[in-house]
Each structure stands twice: as structure tokens, then as C-alpha cells.
Design a protein around this nucleic acid. Structure first.
Lengths: 233, 233
DNA sequence: GCATTGACACTTGTATACAAGAGTGATATA
DNA sequence: TATATCACTCTTGTATACAAGTGTCAATGC
């Protein structure tokens, strides 16, 4: 973290902290101080404050004036609603994409899918595999949104996706078995789109999204302190 | 703007500026300086900067480092995608609401609708009528989301709704005739929900949302400098 | 006349000092 | 012993000084 930059310092801190939060190195509920962070990266409080505000906007931090700043607890109700939005939006967007699908779209998508398959067949260490695959997963979805002409929907989406990303990491949805299921989900998704199979498209999207989430109760109960258990309404 | 507060100053400035932007008192493209704003409200640059960042997050300001800060142009592609998301999400949420509807929901909604009717029948000056009605319009939609048990969806929604609000003001969708159409849209919407009339529900939502937007080209062409006419893709 | 250059006035980004809320714990008092 | 109070230290909020990028425009050299 060079201290010479006169621009981009805030963003660098933001990205660094975000990574640590998403990978649970900064666990939910942890206290995080402006001064501490500033000293750690040898910068002043100002860019740190900027970064904190950005993370607060994404729901990853909770700033309580004159008390402290804390990594936000995982709000299962929020996660549920995020998945709901994703389900509804993707069903609509991908249905639109299927309706305008033509052969020219094939190549780009096949390329991404093949890359994912190669990753899974490779001998990458689990941690690295997981990280690479999730990046490629995002690219896959981004590309579909873009082909459907709904780039803005994707843009907006990324701003609230952080909380779900963290949850996904927590569930350790990154092991090989889960990644394989994700990959097969992608293949099925694309089959449905390219064959304009609207009936199975909706079902495969819902399954793809909620896969893993519904079987999370057992894992969640092992770290109750990470979760917000407010009023269930 | 009291300068004695040690908390809440940023938020106050944010709300004030947001109001001015949404009501086009600060028109799209206008330059707005941190120092100027700070002097105007007799505070320092710090809370002004915070407010600017918040508005940038909502897409209402564009901060160009070392150049200046400008009220963002209205991006019609973005508006289109926002309406699309709203259409898709509301169709899903309201359909869910219809499926769990029972008589106990009736009273609260009827109360809101009656209030709106009274507004329209009153002799309020157009400006005030418009403002009050839009607030009540938001309450109406909020309540429906809440009844459907999707409060978080609404929350998230409000964070990207600002740009649409501004566009709506620009179109002068606040005149009595348009407000009446909005009101009738509400009545029809609620009829569909309470009678579980799924077929007409989707249609009336789409109509309610796009009403006014499609007839906007003429008005838009009168102020081309307010709009972003980037690549149409 | 034209192009280049450099001083200058602006902007936002960053660093730092101070203000004030909020919790903690020791101490004085009943 | 129980309780209230006050000092201390932590936090974030705000004010201000300085750094550095960017564009303007006039002066200078050709």
C-alpha cells in the first residue's frame, strides 16, 4: 500500500478490507477501528473512513457513531431476499436472452464453460480452485446479462451481491463437489437458453440458485455468533 | 443547518442536496463544488464530501477527481433497466402477496387509497399536491412489499430508485391528470390482488409502471442537454 | 500569426487536530 | 455493601491545512 498515491488510496483499502471480510478473515461481529486500520496501512484516517462508508453501503460494515465499527452479522432474511431477487430477475433476463438467442452467442459461452471444466479437471489446490472458479462463475453470469442487453441490471446487482458472496464462502460452497454442481448447473442453463426450452429454464435457474442454501441449517448452527437472529418476521 | 451538531450534519446536507437534485433545482450536468456547498451551509468540507459520496452511490452525482463534481445526466438506458427490474420484481412480489391475501390486509390499504383520493379532491396547490401524492405513492408500494414479507426487497429498491424519481419529476408526471391515472392504477392493482386475479395483475403492473414513460420522447427532446446519449447498445 | 510553455486558479484527495458522544471503572458517599 | 458520580479513554464526527492533478490563459519565443 504505497502512501505516495494521491488518488486511489481509498479504493485500495476498500478492496483489501472487502476481500478480508468476504473470506471471513474479518469475521462477522468483529470490531474494526479506523485508527488501527490507518496505522496498519500507514495512511491517514480519511481514506480509511471513505472505505468504511463504501463497505457500509454494501452492508458489510455497521458504523455506530462514537461507539465503533463492526463487521456486520450475516442476515439470513436478507440473504433469502437477495436470492429471491436473483431468482426472479434471472428468470426474466435469461428468458429474454433465450428469445433473442442466435448461434453467434454460442462461441463466447462455450469458451467460458470449457475453461471452467479445465479448472475442475486440473490439480489446483482447493483454495485457489475455489477462488478462480467463483471469478469465472461471475463472468459467466455477467456475460449472459450482457448478451441479454441488461448490463445495468447486472451492475446494480453487484452492489448488493457482497453479502451473498460472504455467505457462500461461509458455507464453504467452494469445495470440489459443489463447484462441480455449479458447473453442471451452468451447462444445463445454457442448454435451456440455446434450445429456447422455457419450461426447464425457470426450474433450472431456481435450482441453480437455491442449491446449497437449503441444506445450510446444519452448518449455520455451528457458528451462531456469525448470524443475525432478529425478529423472524 | 445548525453547525453545532456533532452528528447528522452529513445526512442533513445529503437530504437537502438530494431534494434539490430530484426537483431539478440542481439540473443534470450542473457543476457543484465542495467548498461552495460547505460555505453555503456554513460547515466544513468533510460532511459535504460524505454527502457527495452518498449521492454518487445513488447515481445522482459524478465525482471526477481533481476536475469537479457534477449532477449526473439522466441515463435513459438506466431508467429503462430500472423500470424493467421494477416490473419483474413487482409482478413476482405482488403475485406472492395475492396468494397469501386475507381480509386482515384490507383495512390498511383502503386507508391509504382513501387518503390519496382525498388529496386529489382537495384544493391543494399543484406543487404541494404532487409532492404529497408521490410520498403517499411510495407508502402504498412500501406497504404492499411489507405485507408480502419482502421488506428487504423494498429497502434495496429505494437505493436505486432516486434516478427514476428525478426522471419522473422531469416528465412532470406530477400534474393532476397523471396523478389521477396513478391513483386508478393503485385501485386496479389492489382489486387484482384482493381477488387473486393473477391474469390481470401482471398486465396492470406493467401498465402502471410504464404509463407515462413511453410517451416521454417529445418532452425529452425539449431538454436534450439533460440526457446521456451514449452508445445505445 | 502561431505554437509552446509556464504561472496560476481551480478542483478533489489526503493528513492531522480537535470536538463530543459513549462506555468503563474507580472512588467517594450514604 | 450498594449506589451514584466523575474522570479517563475509547470511538467516530467535524474542521482545517496541505498535496497534487487539471485546465485556462497569458506571455514568450519562433
Amino acid at each position: 500500500m504505497t502512501a505516495k498515491n494521491r488518488t486511489g488510496t481509498s479504493k485500495a483499502v476498500y478492496l483489501k478490507l472487502k476481500e478480508q471480510i468476504l473470506h471471513l478473515e474479518l469475521p462477522p461481529g468483529a470490531a474494526i477501528s479506523e485508527i488501527e486500520t490507518a496505522e496498519k496501512y500507514e495512511i491517514s484516517r480519511t481514506p480509511v473512513r471513505d472505505a468504511f462508508k463504501m463497505l457500509e453501503n454494501e452492508g458489510l460494515l455497521e458504523i455506530r457513531p462514537h461507539i465503533g465499527t463492526f463487521v456486520s452479522l450475516i442476515d439470513l432474511n436478507m440473504i433469502s431476499d437477495i436470492l429471491y431477487m436473483r431468482e426472479v430477475l434471472e428468470q426474466a433476463v435469461f428468458r429474454d436472452l433465450a428469445s433473442i438467442y442466435d448461434k453467434s452467442h454460442e462461441f463466447g459461452i462455450r469458451l467460458i464453460l470449457q475453461k471452467q471444466k479445465e479448472m475442475l479437471d486440473s490439480a489446483l489446490p482447493p483454495d485457489e480452485l475455489s477462488r478462480s472458479f467463483i471469478i469465472s462463475d461471475n463472468i459467466f453470469h455477467n456475460t449472459l446479462y450482457e448478451l441479454a442487453g441488461r448490463k445495468n441490471v447486472m451492475c446494480f446487482w453487484q452492489s448488493i451481491n457482497s453479502q451473498y458472496e460472504r455467505f457462500r464462502t461461509f458455507l464453504n460452497l467452494g469445495d470440489r463437489e459443489n463447484l462441480l454442481r455449479l458447473y453442471h448447473g451452468h451447462e444445463i442453463l445454457w442448454e435451456c437458453i440455446s434450445h429456447k426450452d422455457y419450461g426447464n429454464l425457470s426450474k433450472s435457474i431456481s435450482h441453480h440458485i437455491y442449491d446449497g442454501f437449503n441444506s445450510s441449517t446444519e452448518v449455520v448452527s455451528r457458528h451462531p455468533e456469525y448470524f443475525k437472529h432478529g425478529k423472524t418476521e
